[in-house]
């Protein structure tokens, strides 16, 4: 890769893509003095489930009452979703011709 080209692309797109957070959240939110940890919600060890329903209620209730089960569910969900999404993406990439096999390790 041409070094100069990589640096130019990086700098140009850096200036351009800084706009993305602004588009999503509005300039004032991102760049105001309240941005960052000051604006964050406090860490709450319990969730108020009174206004929740369905899956949100189930998860929040589990979070409040059985932290071990919550940890097991989080780990299993992450493992299953990670594997499943990777499998699906792999299928799409294969269909596009981007199949990978053992490669030679050239520097």
């Amino acid at each position: 890769m041409s070094t100069t080209r990589a640096l130019v692309i990086l700098l140009v797109s850096l200036s351009f893509t800084c706009v993305i957070p602004v588009v999503f959240t509005g300039y004032n939110e991102v760049c105001s003095s309240e941005a960052g940890s000051e604006q964050s919600t406090e860490f709450r060890n319990k969730v108020d489930t009174s206004k929740l329903s369905g899956i949100e209620y189930l998860i929040a209730d589990m979070y409040n009452n059985d932290r071990v089960l919550y940890a097991v569910v989080v780990t299993l969900v992450m493992a299953t979703l990670g594997t499943g999404m990777a499998f699906l993406t792999d299928l799409v990439l294969k269909a596009l011709g981007l199949e990978v096999s053992r490669i030679s390790h050239k520097e």
């Binding site: 998860i59 940890a71 989080v74 780990t75 969900v77 979703l81 993406t89 990439l93």
Partner: peptide, 29 residues
């Protein structure tokens, strides 16, 4: 880290779920 932080109640599972949709596609690419 996933298990221990979840045990301590420090994982927002819904956010992790949506982030993982993007990241597992990205990781394959």
């Amino acid at each position: 880290g996933c298990f221990t932080y979840a045990m301590k109640g420090r994982v927002e599972i819904f956010a992790a779920f949506f982030m993982l949709i993007g990241s597992s596609i990205g990781a394959q690419i």
